[in-house]
Design a protein around this nucleic acid. Structure first.
Lengths: 326, 326
DNA sequence: TTGAAAGCGTTACCAT
DNA sequence: ATGGTAACGCTTTCAA
């Protein structure tokens, strides 16, 4: 690979000068600049990012840690982050923590060793202390880690309330909930929202809540059990779209028609929610916007532009999209 | 961040010695090694990957370039690659080329500048020449770039033939095809397989082929047009699962029942193919195995273990999974 | 068996 | 306005 030295030699100047035109810092004469630029062109020189990073103690890369890349919500988010990052001159390393604390810590180490300049993370095991030790900007997305940290989340509780209330308005009398992973903030919040609406109903018991894990398989299982436990259920609010799709499947397997016998609402608004039959009624998160905002927030933190504290904690709104499953 | 110098000082030895125990290379006395290891533990030292890469001119990272991360096939593949890479001591940078030659080239540059040690790529625009210039091992996955390159693909044509023949065996008399992106190798192969079976039928015309782009939106559109053009179609082979799901949607919108009025087969076997109603009959690719094999192949190339040439071009088998859409 | 020092490709400081 | 050079953290000769 061709280095700055080669360029310097080719242009008949010192490496310092080449470096200056590269970063346009310091003084460079008009014609000297021309000569150097010509040399760069001719040799097709590309600065070595590794050497740069070593010196600067930071790279032009940001890390993105997601819990499960096979959940379609995260590729959509990743896509937004990547687009925005590229546009702002950064690359992204995508890491899949698999909801595993060990793996997560490993990736944190790796990213730090790679001198990433900042990290966007969706995690429930990570602690504020852990993040401080990193000594680089971190933005939490989709899941709150701590009130003090830069964060992009949505109105989970409100969205859940909207969904549940909507089921009521559709005439549902017994509404069950398929909850996401226990311990995950947004799963808890969505569950709270659900309870807020139906918790006071005379029929309500905790057994109307089934425990899934934000994936389809667990949801099918959980829904089956739920519907066998309470055959009178005529409405289900699932904590994410993939689980809602699983719930639809489970309902069919038990011979129940959606939405005639049972109405189902999801959460997320992944593009797949339009792909099912029936199409899924869901609480739409502004996924792309979340990724975009998080990235911009991170970059402005990395570049230490002024950022009012209040600007660093954004709770985005959600909206209910009525489709065929209700 | 704490460096090798700190460790050396703490252990009362030279940096050279610390480096030796780190890489266990060269001679290190038994007790010296102990001292150093203790120091490493106590200081929680982690070698700086950037500095290492700079010296070695290669990092312990591999690149993975996929055309579209929002197509569920690729996250599943990425997951397999990542798992395997980690296990073998490598990290992966995931890049999304968006089927865009420009972006692809940009990522190639970036990866090279980061001294990645190897790349796994799914591309149709990349040329063998382009890859040679990289001077690092590259494994092509899912799409053949050139016969001479290390490659992992599946029996696309055979799979397509199986799918089409299967539709015939189910009694379909007019079978249409939703093709993937024009110019993409596997889309062409799957189309060929389809034609191989029905190309000779008296009813067949080119207009039984509709042009999609491996995503749902384009497929809905294409299927609509196809079914309006040929209302007699009672079977559709879609070139991937997402398009098959789109085809199901389109059929419903035109008031046709699947599988009663029209049978539909997909290709890929993404986990979502089980999620639809009706569940999708599809040609299953061994997705995880593909990612795993590609990664192992790449790593063995990177580490220059002996690799018989014949071992570097693998065409994996596919299998038809019959479910409810046929 | 161990240490000193050169070098990987950059950048930034200090001279000139 | 330009060049020389130390330094970033590491590995690997070369000597001792």
């Amino acid at each position: 690979m061709i280095s700055i030295k080669d360029v310097a030699k080719h242009a008949g100047v010192s490496v310092a000068t080449v470096s200056r035109v590269l970063n346009n810092s310091g003084y460079v004469g008009q014609d000297t600049r021309m000569k150097v630029e010509k040399a760069i062109q001719e040799l097709k020189y590309k600065p070595n990012e590794v050497a740069r990073s070593l010196f600067k103690k930071q790279s032009s890369t940001i890390g993105l840690i997601v819990p499960d890349i096979t959940n379609p919500f995260f590729p959509e988010l990743a896509r937004a982050v990547e687009d925005t990052a590229i546009q702002l001159g950064y690359n992204v390393i995508l890491c899949n923590s698999d909801e595993d604390e060990q793996k997560e810590q490993n990736y944190l180490d790796v990213l730090q060793q790679q001198y990433v300049k900042g990290i966007i993370v969706s995690s429930n095991t990570m602690t504020a202390k852990q993040i401080e030790q990193l000594n680089i900007p971190v933005v939490s997305i989709d899941r709150v880690i701590s009130k003090g940290l830069p964060t992009i989340v949505v109105e989970n509780k409100k969205g859940a309330m909207m969904a549940t209330r909507f089921l009521q308005s559709k005439g549902c009398r017994r509404i069950g909930h398929i909850k996401g992973n226990s311990g995950v903030v947004n799963a808890e919040e969505r569950c709270e929202g659900y309870k807020e609406i139906v918790g006071g109903e005379p029929w309500f018991e905790e057994t109307y809540i089934a425990y899934g894990q934000y994936d389809m398989q667990s949801s099918i299982q959980a829904t089956m059990e739920l519907l066998q436990r309470h055959p009178d259920i005529d409405g289900i609010f699932a904590a994410n779209d993939i689980m809602a799709i699983g719930a639809i499947k489970a309902a069919y397997q038990l011979g129940k028609k959606v939405p005639q016998d049972i109405a189902i609402v999801g959460f997320d608004g992944i593009s797949l929610s339009k792909a099912t039959t029936p199409e899924l009624t869901t609480v739409q998160q502004p996924i792309y916007e979340m990724g975009e905002k998080a990235t911009k927030m991170l970059v402005s933190l990395m570049e230490r532009q002024q950022t009012m504290d209040q600007e660093n904690y954004k709770i985005l709104d959600v909206s209910l999209i009525e489709r065929e499953s209700t």
